[in-house]
Amino acid sequence: MAWNLRFRRKRDLPDGLWLKCLGCGQMVFAKQVEERNQVCPECNFHFRISAGERIRITVDEGTFEELYEDLEPVDYLDFTDRKSYRQRIDEEQAKTGLKDACIIGTASIGGHKTVFGVTDSNFMMGSMGAVVGEKVTLAAEEAVSRRLPLVLFSGSGGGARMQEGVISLSQMAKTAAAIARLHDARVPYISILTNPTMGGVAASWAALGDILIAEPKALIGFAGPRTIKLTLGIDLPDDFQSAEFLLSHGFMDMIVGRQNMKEELTRLLALLAPATHE
C-alpha cells in the first residue's frame, strides 16, 4: 500500500495498526485515518495521497476515462547527475506504477462532466517535465473543444523538473498559453492546490484558475522555504506559505478540506454549468 510510505510506523506495534501523524505527532488509528481519506482525526493534517486515490475520492464512481495515457518522458538533454535521468525514470515508474507525474481524463463530479487532471507528488516530487506540461496543455485544449469545465489538482514540491532543463521551464509558458486560450474561449477552470505546490507548477497553470482552492495547511509558493531561509539567514513565520497564509494575503478563493472537496466542487460546477452551455 503506497500510502503507508507517508507514515512513520512505531516499531513495537503491529504493522499498520497505529500511525504517527506528521502534523501533530500523535499516535492515531491507521484505519481511522484511512476512513477519513488520509486526514488525521486529531489535527486535520492532510497526508499526501496518490493520483489514483485522489481520483477515487473526488469523481463519481466509474466515470473516469483516462486520456493521453501513453505519453512517456523523453530524456531531451541526455541528462546524467549521480545517475542517469533514464535510470531515475525507470525507478520512479517501478515505484509508483505511473508513467510520469500526471494523470488526465474526463470524469463526472456530482453528475457534472469535466476534464479532470491530477499531478502525483510521489513521482519525482510531482515535478513538471514535458509529460506534465503536455498533458496539462492537452487537457486545456480538450476542455475548450468539448466545452467542459477544467478541474486540475496540483501537487508538486519539485516545480519544473531539473533533469529536462529548459524544456521543463518552457512548459510553464506552454501551459500558461493553453490556459489563456481556455479563458478566451470562456471555459471555466477550477485549480485545486494541494500540499505542496511550489516553483514552476505554482507559477504557471496552477495559479491561473478562475477559482483557486487550497487544501488546509498545504505549502504553496514560488521559492522553497529552505532557499529563502538560506538566502536571508532568518527564521520564517510559522504559517509562512501555508494555504491559510495565502488566503489571508488574497491569493486563494477558499480553503476546502478533503472531506468536503467533492461536495464543494459539485456546488461550484452546478453554479458554473449555465455558462458552459451558453
Binding site: A206, A207, G221, A223, G224, T227, L232, F240, F251
Partner: peptide, 13 residues
C-alpha cells in the same frame, strides 16, 4: 527574488 515579502505579495501569481 526568494524573499518573505515576495511570497506575501504572490511571486508565483
Amino acid at each position: 527574488f526568494p524573499g518573505i515579502g515576495a511570497e506575501e505579495r504572490g511571486q508565483f501569481s
